[in-house]
Write a protein that binds this DNA or RNA. Structure first.
Lengths: 214, 214
DNA sequence: TAGATTGTTAATCGATTAACAATC
DNA sequence: TAGATTGTTAATCGATTAACAATC
C-alpha cells in the first residue's frame, strides 16, 4: 500500500462511473470522453478526469477513455470481480424489502443470511435467503467469513443487537436506525436515515421558495 | 430573505441536533454545552457552535444552550411545527415498508397517499394510507397541495412516471431508484441508493484492511 | 469574583473548477 | 498535420478546526 488514499469524494463517485460505463458498454459504445460523462452525470469534466487520474493513466489524450478497458479496471479496483456476502438483521418491512431485492442488479453483492427474533420467521427462507435466530449469529458470521451487516431493526432493540454484532467480529454496519450506534473505532458504520433525508429535502425546497419570493 | 443561506453542511446537521436535543429534553435536561453535544454526536464542538451561531445568538457565554429554548427555535426553524404531507409512488416491498413506517417517530411528516399501477392494490389502504392509480396523481397533488414525492418504483417504470410527477407540479423527489432522474432544474432530487452505500462501505473496509497489513 | 463557555477570527484542510501544455 | 482530449498546475471555494477575547 504505497500510493493509496484516494479522496473520499472520489471514492463515492466511482460506483456512479462504473454503473454509467456498464450501460454504455451494453449499448455498444467503444470510447467516451470526460466531457460526455460530465454531461450524462452532471459532474464537472475536470472532476472526472481528476478522479480517474487517481487510478492511473486510464485515458489517452485526444481519444478519451476506452469503455471496455475502463470497466475492466474499475471492476477489479472496486472488487466487483468477487462476491461479497453480507447478512441482514431484522426481517421486518424494510428488511423484507431488501431481502426480496437482494441487490439483484449487482451480481457481486449477496445477502447470505438474515436474522430475526420472531419465532414465526426463524427457519423460513425469503427469496432463497434463510432466516436464523440471533443466537446463531456469531457462529454463522465466523464460518462464512462475513464482514458486513445490514441493520434494519426497531430502535428499541438496537443496543443489545449492536453489542452482539460487534462481538461477532463484523467490521462494517449499514445502519437504517435513526440513532448513533455505539461501536468501537475499528467498526465502520454507514447510516441511511430516510427521515433525515426527507427533512433535508423539504428544508431546501422551502429555501428555494423563499428565494423565489424575494 | 436577507441574512439567509446557511451552509449545506450545517443544514444537514440541524436535524441531528434537533433529535439529540429532544432526547435530552425528555430526560429532563435544562442546559447543555457545545462540548457535551460534541461528545455525544462526535462532531467538533467548534463546528457545533458555528452551526448554531448561524441561526442567531442562541447560546449564553459561560452557560451554554438552554435545551427547551433551542428546541423551540429549531422546531420553528425546521418547520416541525406544521405537518408536511408527501406522497409515495410504488407500493412494492420498499414502498410498503415506508407506508407501514410512515415516519411515526416524526409527527410533522406524513404520507398522504400512495400510488401504484397494480389493480390489486388500487383502492385499498395500507396503514390508513389510500392507494390510488397514477391516473389520479396530478389532481390529488394539486388538491392537497403536495410538493414532495417519494419514488419507490422499479427502474423500468421510472421514466414515464417521473414525467408525470414533474408535470403535476411536484418540486421535490426522494428517489430510491438507482438511476439519475430527468427533471427540470427547479425540481430537487435527493437520491438514496442502498446498493451504492453498501459498495462504498465495503470499499472503505477493504482500504482499512490494507492499511492494517502494511 | 472566578470559572465556564460562547461566538468569531484566523489557519487549515479537502474538494472543485478553470485553464492549458502535453500529446495522441 | 490538425483537432481532440487528457492529466495536472494553479486558483477558488466551502467546510472544519484551533485558539482566544468577550462575557455571562
Amino acid at each position: 500500500m504505497a500510493e493509496q488514499q484516494i479522496p473520499k469524494a472520489t471514492v463515492k463517485r466511482l460506483p456512479l462511473y462504473y454503473r454509467f460505463l456498464q450501460r454504455l458498454y451494453r449499448s455498444g459504445r467503444e470510447r467516451i470522453s470526460s466531457l460526455e460523462i460530465s454531461e450524462a452525470l452532471r459532474i464537472d469534466s475536470a472532476t472526472i478526469r481528476r478522479d480517474l487520474s487517481y487510478l492511473g493513466g486510464l485515458g489517452k489524450k485526444g481519444y478519451g477513455y476506452n469503455v471496455a478497458h475502463l470497466i475492466q479496471f474499475l471492476t477489479h479496483y472496486l472488487g466487483h470481480d468477487e462476491v461479497t456476502n453480507v447478512v441482514l438483521i431484522g426481517a421486518g418491512n424494510l428488511g423484507m424489502a431488501l431481502l426480496h431485492h437482494n441487490f439483484y442488479m449487482t451480481k457481486h453483492l449477496n445477502i447470505f443470511a438474515a436474522f430475526d427474533k420472531d419465532e414465526q420467521k426463524i427457519g423460513r427462507t425469503v427469496n432463497g435467503i434463510p432466516i436464523y435466530a440471533m443466537h446463531d449469529f456469531a457462529e454463522l458470521v465466523r464460518k462464512a467469513g462475513i464482514e458486513v451487516a445490514i441493520l434494519t431493526i426497531p430502535v428499541a432493540s438496537v443496543e443489545p443487537v449492536v453489542e452482539q454484532v460487534v462481538e461477532s467480529g463484523i467490521r462494517g454496519i449499514l445502519n437504517f436506525s435513526p440513532i448513533r450506534l455505539k461501536v468501537p473505532p475499528y467498526v465502520r458504520v454507514h447510516n441511511i436515515d430516510v427521515t433525515m433525508e426527507l427533512q433535508t429535502l423539504i428544508y431546501f425546497l422551502k429555501q428555494d421558495a423563499e428565494y423565489q419570493e424575494e
